[in-house]
Each structure stands twice: as structure tokens, then as C-alpha cells.
């Protein structure tokens, strides 16, 4: 059984079925990309795994333990960390406080908090220079670094990222994705939702393509990058500006 295992997930908003049987899995050290157009159900998938939404049916497990019906704040403690769409950092708190909240579950272990903060600052040196700055006044790129750093404070087994490169300059987007690769190389399983399919496939090991709540295509990232259907739908020339 894989570290993260999702089986036949069905999720509704009221009467509208947003996920119509999603199955996927991820292993430690792997980046698994989730691609798909607007409204396909990518964010819904991540929100269901992290416990913000309840599935109507289907199963989710991390390291063999079921996550279905478990409260979101408990799921964090089970090793799943979610960097939500739009970053959603706490803009009225400073960088240090945002990171402290990322380590909320280990808040009484001051030494551990210090070590994890140091690790985040090694990964994102720009954050170290801005420890006392209000998060709302950070640049977009710095906010994304903070959102990722905050999620790493709980030392997750599974890290889920919802469009981390959105709104970033191409160079910055690339550097953020490179960092994501680094995080995976250290042993986390990474679930990466991206609009930027080309760059996502470049760093991913495996990928799923979602359309209207269903997985329509899956396979090795290198294989999918060459797939004609994927190229036509998601690797069109429109996003080639600036992408190498």
C-alpha cells in the first residue's frame, strides 16, 4: 500500500458532484502532479484529503491510517500538510508567528521548533531576513515561500501544494518548484497541483490529469509530457512566454 492512498473519492457541493471517483497514490520521495483545467476538481481533491471537506464515499489513507471523517487539525498531526490555493498566510501576523503556527502541534517543544525554523530559513534564506515583517507586506514570492515553509514546520510525510507558482514571475516560479523537488528528495511525498503543466511535469515523477471530477489520464511524468492529448490541452503555446 502506498504512503498516500486515495480510492474512488466522491465529493459533493450540495447536489453538485465535484469529484466523481478519484483514485491516486503517492510514495515517499515522489512528486505526483495533478493537472487539469479550471474547475476540474484539483483543489477539491486536496481539500478533501486534508479534511476541510468530507467525501460522500471513497477512502483516503496515510501510512495505513484512514483520514476519512478525521478533523483537519488532527490530519496535520498524522503527517499531511496542505499549502492551500492562494497561500492564505496570516497577513496580520509576522513571518516568525506564521511559522510558529505551522508548528502549532509541537508548540511546547521549543528546541524542535527552533530547529525546524532554522531548516525553513536554510531552504528560504529570504524569509530569515524578514522574520519580524508582517506577512501581509511580503512580496508574492515571499508569501509563497512562507506558505510552504509554514507547512514544513509540521515535518509532513505528505506535502500537498495547490498552485504554488501562481502569480510568480517565471524565474521565481522555477525556483519555487526546484525547492519542491528538494523537499521530495528529502523523503516527503509531494502532491503538486499546477496550472503550469510544463514545469510541473518537468519536476514530477508521476502525473494525473483530472477533467470534470474524473481522472482521464495518468502515467509517468516524462511519458505524459510527450503525450499528444496533454500537449494539446495543457502544454499549448499560450504559456511558453518565459518558460525555457
Amino acid at each position: 500500500m502506498a504512503l498516500l492512498e486515495v480510492q474512488d473519492l466522491h465529493v459533493y457541493y450540495g447536489n453538485i458532484e465535484a469529484l466523481r471517483g478519484i483514485s491516486l497514490h503517492a510514495e515517499p520521495g515522489q512528486i505526483v502532479a495533478i493537472l487539469g483545467g479550471n474547475g476540474a476538481g484539483k483543489t477539491t481533491t486536496l481539500r478533501t484529503i486534508s479534511g476541510l471537506l468530507r467525501p460522500r464515499s471513497g477512502s483516503i489513507s496515510c501510512a495505513g491510517k484512514s483520514l476519512v471523517g478525521v478533523d483537519a487539525h488532527v490530519i496535520v498531526g498524522m503527517g499531511v500538510s496542505h499549502v492551500p490555493e492562494g497561500r492564505r498566510i496570516f497577513n496580520i501576523l509576522d513571518v516568525d508567528e506564521n511559522l510558529a503556527l505551522g508548528g502549532y502541534l509541537i508548540r511546547s517543544q521549543h528546541q524542535l521548533i527552533k530547529e525546524r525554523k532554522a531548516a525553513v530559513f536554510t531552504l528560504f534564506p529570504r524569509l530569515a531576513e524578514r522574520r519580524g515583517q508582517l506577512a501581509g507586506t511580503l512580496s508574492g514570492g515571499e508569501q509563497q515561500m512562507l506558505a510552504i515553509g509554514r507547512a514544513l514546520m509540521s515535518n509532513p510525510k505528505v506535502l500537498m501544494l495547490d498552485e504554488p507558482s501562481l502569480g510568480l514571475a517565471p524565474i521565481l516560479a522555477k525556483s519555487v518548484l526546484k525547492t519542491v523537488r528538494e523537499i521530495a528528495n528529502r523523503g516527503a511525498a509531494v502532491l503538486l497541483v499546477e496550472q503550469n503543466a510544463r514545469q510541473a511535469l518537468a519536476i514530477a515523477d508521476h502525473a494525473y490529469v483530472i477533467e470534470v471530477g474524473r481522472i482521464v489520464l495518468e502515467g509517468g511524468a516524462a511519458v505524459l509530457a510527450k503525450d499528444e492529448r496533454v500537449q494539446k490541452a495543457y502544454l499549448g503555446g499560450f504559456e511558453s512566454v518565459g518558460s525555457a
Binding site: 487539525h73 496535520v76 492551500p84 503556527l101 502549532y104
Partner: peptide
């Protein structure tokens, strides 16, 4: 940290849940 969590709740409940905060 609990006090910081209280301030965070003024901003975003869902994001707080994702930090492991029992809202």
C-alpha cells in the same frame, strides 16, 4: 502560540485548521 492562534482565527479559520489548530 495559543494566543497567536487566536489572532490567526481573526483572519482565516480554514488556514488555521491546516496548521493543526483545533479551532
Amino acid at each position: 502560540t495559543i494566543g497567536t492562534a487566536m489572532r490567526a482565527l481573526a483572519v482565516d479559520h480554514d488556514a488555521a485548521r491546516l496548521m493543526g489548530i483545533n479551532v
